[in-house]
């Protein structure tokens, strides 16, 4: 299999997948080396950048996935008769930021940092599947510990948590 063909196979794989495909998975199926896969992915990404293409290669949640280009979002919303996605409140985002960096963490500990009660935000984040209960803290009352979920990276279009850390520095 030459590299042009390999790139076609990778594109086909990504086309059918409804979740990010990892580089390891691609390597296993195509029998290509890390370098070769990188080359194909880079080539595919470049080609998608062409003006006449509506999709792009997205590096997300530890893998790769084909997604639609941002500028065409409203056409898609019209097409699937769905309003634009709702966004999280700043209260929920602050709560999530704390959980992200301090997990596993209890409600009381989050409240200590934010200086306000966080029950409602926790409820929202749980409903959206962005956080989950990851256990109980071994102190009096055995309070619930929270952590972020796999869907968290997907929701924010992130490849890994490091991506956020580097932004901060």
């Amino acid at each position: 299999m030459n590299l042009r063909e390999a790139q076609a196979v990778i594109e086909a794989l990504l086309f059918v997948s409804n979740k990010p495909v990892t580089k390891e998975e691609i390597m296993k199926i195509t029998n290509l080396s890390d370098k070769e896969v990188n080359f194909c992915l880079q080539n595919l990404a470049n080609q998608c950048q062409a003006e006449e293409r509506g999709i792009k290669l997205v590096k997300i949640a530890g893998g790769y996935q084909l997604g639609t280009k941002e500028q065409y979002a409203h056409y898609i919303e019209d097409f699937i008769s769905q309003p634009a996605k709702t966004s999280l409140s700043s209260a929920a985002l602050e709560t999530l930021a704390i959980i992200l960096y301090k997990q596993p963490i209890t409600r009381a500990e989050i409240e200590e940092i934010r200086g306000v009660r966080v029950e409602k935000s926790l409820q929202t984040l749980l409903e959206k599947g962005l956080i989950e209960e990851v256990g109980r803290k071994n102190v009096i009352g055995k309070p619930i510990l929270y952590g972020t979920t796999k869907d968290f990276l997907k929701y924010f279009g992130l490849f890994s948590l490091d991506e956020l850390v580097s932004k901060l520095d």
Binding site: L66, T68, A73, I76, A84, L93, Y155, F156
Partner: peptide, 9 residues
Amino acid sequence: EAEASLVYY
């Protein structure tokens, strides 16, 4: 979040 909400999979 704003960026990611515009991409559909």
